[in-house]
Amino acid sequence: MSNLSKDHLDYLKKERIKKLSVAATQLSILILLFLLWEISARLKWIDPFIMSQPTRVLKTIITLSKDGSLLLHTGVTVLETVVGFLSGTILGTAVAIVLWWSEFTAKVFDPYLVVLNALPKTALGPIILVWIGGTASSIIVMALLISVVVTILSVYMAFQSTDEDKIKLLKTFGANKLKVLKMVVLPANIPSIVSALKINVGLSLVGVIVGEFLVSKAGLGYLIIYGGQVFKMDLVMTSVLILAAAAALMYISVAWLEKKLTKMR
């Protein structure tokens, strides 16, 4: 560090201060919001029975933790989501490989995929419920359905935009289609696949929550719908906040994985 010029050290310091002030402001906004919420509830500007309040949320978290149901419900939702986005990404990539392999298949299925992509998959909820039954499997299928079509389309598009000259290069050595797939198309598009995985975290969470609204007896979606029905707004707010935290955590983990993978390249 000693060989850095004073100018450069000043520059680094300024950059650090910029970064810190952004983080500090972000944190302040969050704290301010919660404070405002708490104060307005205490001063009866808002009705805490309908709007809940941070201290009530905290109490709810404590009661739920004591009987272990907090862990259970969060765990169920997170597990369903993870299975959903992983299977959505894997299945989507597999289908994208098939489409890349056979141009004929890709052309035939193009309009079907476009329509499926435009269709709000949540509309299929009741059908899945009837076909598969009120179990965790239909929730996972819901999560899978929401993420798989987007994955197919985006990964296939990435496959198609693989550098033609890199493929030509392998062909000049006499490569067959499988070699081209394994040596160029897949490795060149790992960033696109991981980025699909990242998008799928959010998408399959939508699927899981909708699924839990419809069928489940456990999970954060279940807590939200149950809380709403019996008018326990504390429970609803608590579940939504925990859901936000879980979603952020999953997203951050995948983003971390992405960073690791791109570093390896």
């Binding site: 550098d163 000259d165 890199k166 030509k168 290069l169 062909k171 000049t172 050595f173 006499g174 040596m183 160029v184 490795p187 060149a188 790992i190 390249r265």
Partner: peptide, 19 residues
Amino acid sequence: DGTSENVGYMLQKDHLFEW
């Protein structure tokens, strides 16, 4: 008839695989 190991081809760019 198809590619042969006797012939090597150098393209316009190096096309090294960055990974």
